[in-house]
Write a protein that binds this DNA or RNA. Structure first.
Lengths: 233, 233
DNA sequence: TCCCGGCGTTACACACGGTTACAAACCGTT
DNA sequence: AACGGTTTGTAACCGTGTGTAACGCCGGGA
């Protein structure tokens, strides 16, 4: 849901997913600890000691960047197969917070053990590095969208990306339930929640989607993608 | 110049710089190739084969994300000590373009050789990973600023960050020359160049800075930082 | 030296999205 | 079923930043 370029073009074709990792092999080196999460539960707070990465097994979480003066920015949403905490690598304390949007389960991967495991398993090292690079590309795609698209286009782009992520997980890209509130979506897209509401109803009016609160049905995929790209009208 | 949090707080205190790397040691493993660049010269284009990372030895470059429909977004500015190309790790082709803003020199680090060198030098591997994570944190700080600050505050924040980067390189944080045009600044800050101009003159009117085209003098550092934070007025 | 093109600045009208306010729908609790 | 709190939707107004245009400045080339 990081609004990365929707089409898997040649540049992103080889983006490695952490999901298809051999966890049985990994468990020989790293003690993987399962954690159940409930809605609104913090997985970690900004400022807490950084000790582990987290693999999302189920559910959906948001990562939130915080400023000293109280400003906050949702920097992404993570679902099954995504890795959490990589942004804090090299620090002693977490750079941001991670909050569960619904109940779910994450697998804790203690970082010191991961480091030694990386020395034994070059494949793991490559996957981790690839995950970091992929995160940078996602963020840059977000910058491009927020920097160049208007409110409606941003919302459309977001929905296209969400749909693609659901498709990758084997769910329907045509009909899904958003896991986050309007406020979270708005914050992520650098908009206000009223604006997101208006954009959603407008996309509904245009028969591109059918919305009912968090339930979204994609009626005109091509049209939605056209809207998500720079094309006006 | 990526508008990261200006104060080096406890969270960013251990951000590893690639600058203090032992290049003599690295040269035993990697054939470092020097490249001179002239203003407006592309170091690499989006879509070109990804074969190397680049260490900026002198000069200033911008990285530009491109969309199929022609939209473009400046994702950052790189100066001496910064690493270029890391966002394309794991891909066959570069994900973005890099353009020199002035004459300068970069050192090409062929990536396959870097990979093998990383296996021999754990310190190098750590530095590379840290550089990737640091990039993510910079991007998230940018998201926070663009998502929550108005035009004036963004420009102030940008100037504070530029000043900090110059200071780190041993130059004056009080008096410097911007290396990029208003258009590049504006694109990076998700504004229009006219808006950046107006913001600069307003910061000048407020006696926080003294501007004359690309020349900037910081008159009230604390005031500028206050403006760069969420504080209104 | 003059001319030209790129860059930066300024003025003004307008539009998009923010602000504010209120209402409706949903949720969990009692 | 009634209640309160939260989330979402709708509407009117307003302000920040944009679009447009004109002008000034500076540097490079003829």
């Amino acid at each position: 849901m990081n609004m990365q370029a929707e089409a898997t073009d040649t540049r992103t074709a080889h983006a490695a997913a952490f999901a298809d990792l051999d966890f049985d092999l990994l468990r020989r080196y790293v003690q993987v600890i399962r954690h159940k999460l409930t809605a609104d539960q913090y997985l970690y707070h900004a400022g807490q000691p950084f000790q582990a990465l987290y693999f999302v097994h189920s559910g959906c979480l948001k990562t939130v960047e915080l400023a000293d003066d109280g400003r906050d920015q949702v920097t992404g949403f993570r679902m099954r197969g995504d890795l959490l905490g990589i942004e804090s690598i090299g620090l002693r304390q977490h750079a941001c917070s991670a909050v569960a949007l619904e109940q779910g389960e994450v697998w804790e991967l203690p970082y010191p053990a991961m480091l030694t495991a990386c020395r034994e398993l070059p494949e793991l090292q490559a996957k981790l590095t690839a995950a970091l690079a992929e995160q940078i590309r996602q963020d840059h795609a977000w910058m491009l969208n927020v920097g160049t698209l208007n409110a409606e286009q941003r919302v459309a782009s977001f929905l296209v990306d969400v749909a693609a992520r659901y498709a990758r997980l084997g769910y329907s890209a045509r009909h899904f339930i958003l896991r986050m509130r309007r406020t979270d979506m708005a914050n992520f897209l650098a908009l206000k929640h009223e604006t997101v509401s208006r954009a959603m109803t407008r996309l509904d009016d245009l028969r591109l989607i059918a919305v009912e609160r968090r339930e979204v049905r994609v009626l005109d995929d091509a049209g939605l993608r056209r809207m998500a790209a720079g094309c006006a009208s």
